[in-house]
Amino acid sequence: MSQPSEQPRLSPQFCFSFGTVRDFLRLSRASIDDSITQNLNALVTPARTGFDPNSTSRRTPRSFTEQIDPEACQKFKDEVLFPSWKARADVLSYCGIVATSPDPSDPEAAVIALETQKNRERIVDERLDPYSGRFFPREPRTQSLALLMRQERAVENIVRNRTWDVIQGRCGASGQSWQDAMGDWEAQKYK
């Protein structure tokens, strides 16, 4: 069985390292969600009744309509899927808070302030140069982080919906949304 994604040590430096955040999310999704079919196939014991030599005499496509043992599915969700989702949700939540907090240690803050001040002092005559009124200020890194978090939350939602659809198909549809199932798991785990 796959191992759940291990949550990294959360700090503002981790969040502002956009590549590190993306790598963590990408690797976690790849090991659990992107390979959900393989992870679920690993829960099926193919040789329950023993090997049948006649099974190799003809070629038939394998049917994935076979339901997986409900206990094995629940164990996979409780021990691998939901902890991985929680680790990613914690990273997205923490970095979202960092993105909305003031950033006194922004190395570009002085440059941004200087550019903004210079822009206010500029004299613009658009009759002489229609493009002279353009000013493209640098974004503070908190705004860039906020944009990244919005994008990653949208990706996370899509990935979870897709994963949950596969789980519902292979483990038996419970009629429960992934949000409700995750909420139930968290309530059970963090009583």
Rank of each mutant, 00 (worst) to 15 (best):
L27P: 00
T65G: 15
A30V: 07
D165F: 03
D180H: 12
V21R: 13
R48V: 12
P83F: 00
F16E: 05
V44C: 04
P70C: 04
K189S: 11
F14C: 08
P61D: 03
S174C: 09
V159F: 03
N41Y: 01
S93K: 06
P83N: 02
E126G: 04
L128N: 09
P12Y: 07
D180Q: 14
E139C: 01
Q168G: 11
D90C: 06
V155R: 06
L43H: 12
I68F: 09
V159W: 03
Y94Q: 03
Q74G: 12
S105V: 13
V166T: 12
T60M: 08
R160W: 13
Q143M: 13
S31N: 15
M149I: 15
K118G: 00
I36M: 13
C95K: 02
W185D: 05
K75V: 10
R127M: 05
A42M: 12
E126D: 01
T56L: 14
F16W: 05
Q168I: 00
D23L: 10
W85R: 14
R26S: 11
V98W: 03
E108K: 11
S31I: 02
V159Y: 03
R170W: 08
P107V: 10
W85T: 10
F16N: 02
K75F: 08
I167R: 00
S57P: 00
G96Q: 10
R134K: 05
D129K: 14
S84M: 02
L114R: 15
L25W: 00
A154C: 00
R141M: 06
T37D: 13
L27A: 14
D129L: 06
P107A: 10
K189H: 03
S28R: 04
G172E: 14
Q74C: 03
I97G: 11
I97K: 15
K77Y: 01
D129A: 11
E152V: 01
K75G: 04
D23W: 05
S105T: 15
W185A: 01
F135T: 07
F76M: 08
L40P: 11
T49L: 14
Q151P: 02
P104G: 02
G183V: 03
Q179H: 06
A30H: 10
R48G: 08
A42V: 08
Q176C: 06
V166A: 04
Q74F: 04
V91K: 06
I97S: 12
E66L: 10
L114M: 13
Q67P: 01
